[in-house]
């Protein structure tokens, strides 16, 4: 019997998801034994034309990481969708938009101006920007179109399953691979991680006071974190109440609050709005009846970039998706 064919692909991402595959260590060898990797640009020398030559639906599963922000990525994921039985959105950027998705607070013109002109390490007085076509004596050079808006994978193609996280942890990756090989997959569209909030599994939850009140909001670098205290009780915003569990509490164990890379639980549509809601209700709750409007505004001044904080990993997948285009 021939082995199931597997493809890995990357779009707008940092490369960390590729690293996560390598981090499977010995398990990667088990996987490599059980499947036939037919496409993996970061590690193997297959080309787009090799994929085009495959029969439609012949790849058992494509793991695609990264958000979609260029025409090339769009074209490649449509091609992989056609060739694959299953598509798994791998990691926060494919799942939610991730860090590249924060570009949705800007647009192409602003990003180009910053990156190719005003950034201190660039000198570009003539304002020369990348073009999709450039004529040179030898012919025409082309580059992909760069879009104003970053999209999630499922805003671009149909997605069967999601592996959350920046990056997805090895146990969840292996669990997904085994479920696929055994044909024991849950309902289509499922996020392959526990459907619980991070606070339900967090080791700091036991130190969470019964009556939480955030009298003053502080940023992580302003507090010497007590490893036996919930971040919220220290006045540090943690998105654990609104974020899906399953990461192994990586940030928490490293002394940092959660920033929501696992996305929301099933019942929640918009992680950012939910997190904002739970944090706002905790601010000054102790003395809420006496709090004046000025005091409230002053307390909120300590949240320097609320949109960037609450939507750090999930902007393209949120209800609003991007900054308004006027």
């Amino acid at each position: 019997m021939s082995k199931p064919k597997v493809a890995f692909y990357w779009c707008a991402s940092c490369g960390g998801c590729e690293e996560a595959v390598i981090d499977l260590n010995e398990d990667l060898l088990t996987v490599a034994d059980a499947v036939d990797i037919v496409f993996w640009p970061v590690a193997l020398d297959f080309k787009k034309k090799d994929v085009e030559a495959m029969e439609d639906g012949s790849i058992a599963v494509s793991f695609i990481n990264g958000a979609i922000r260029t025409s090339e990525q769009e074209e490649m994921v449509h091609l992989l969708r056609r060739k694959s039985g299953l598509v798994v959105a791998f990691g926060s950027c494919a799942h939610l938009g991730g860090i590249p998705g924060l570009a949705n607070f800007h647009n192409k013109a602003e990003i180009f101006e910053r990156v190719y002109k005003t950034v201190p390490t660039v000198t570009n007085p003539e304002g020369i920007y990348p073009q999709t076509e450039t004529k040179v004596p030898e012919g025409t050079l082309t580059l992909p179109e760069f879009y104003d808006t970053v999209k999630t994978l499922d805003q671009t193609i149909d997605v069967d399953y999601y592996l959350p996280g920046c990056a997805p942890p090895p146990d969840l990756i292996m669990g997904a691979v085994q479920a696929i090989l055994a044909g024991e997959l849950p309902e289509r569209g499922t996020v392959l991680a526990p459907d619980k909030a991070l606070c339900d599994t967090c080791p700091l939850a036991e130190y969470k006071p019964e009556k939480l009140s955030m009298s003053q909001i502080k940023r992580p670098h302003e507090v010497l974190h007590d490893p036996k205290q919930c971040f919220l009780a220290e006045g540090i915003i943690c998105l654990g109440p609104a974020t899906r569990s399953g990461c192994g509490e990586r940030c928490i164990n490293a002394g940092m609050p959660c920033r929501g890379c696992f996305g929301p639980t099933r019942e929640v549509k918009d992680l950012g709005a939910k997190a904002l809601s739970s944090i706002a209700s905790l601010i000054g709750i102790e003395e809420e009846e006496e709090m004046t409007e000025e005091e409230l505004e002053k307390a909120l001044d300590n949240i320097v970039d609320p949109a960037g904080l609450f939507f750090m990993y999930s902007l393209p997948s949120s209800v609003l998706r991007r900054r308004r285009i006027k």
Binding site: F105, A280, I283, E289, L300, L320, R323, R324
Partner: peptide
């Protein structure tokens, strides 16, 4: 009105949520 919420303090929470959401909306160009 403050003090009159049937659930005692629901309106205080609404007040804080709206105040924070307004700041966030401004960043979204709304």
């Amino acid at each position: 009105h403050p003090g009159d919420c049937h659930y005692k303090n629901g309106n205080y929470k609404a007040l804080r949520r709206v105040a924070l959401l307004k700041r966030t909306l401004a960043q979204f160009g709304i």
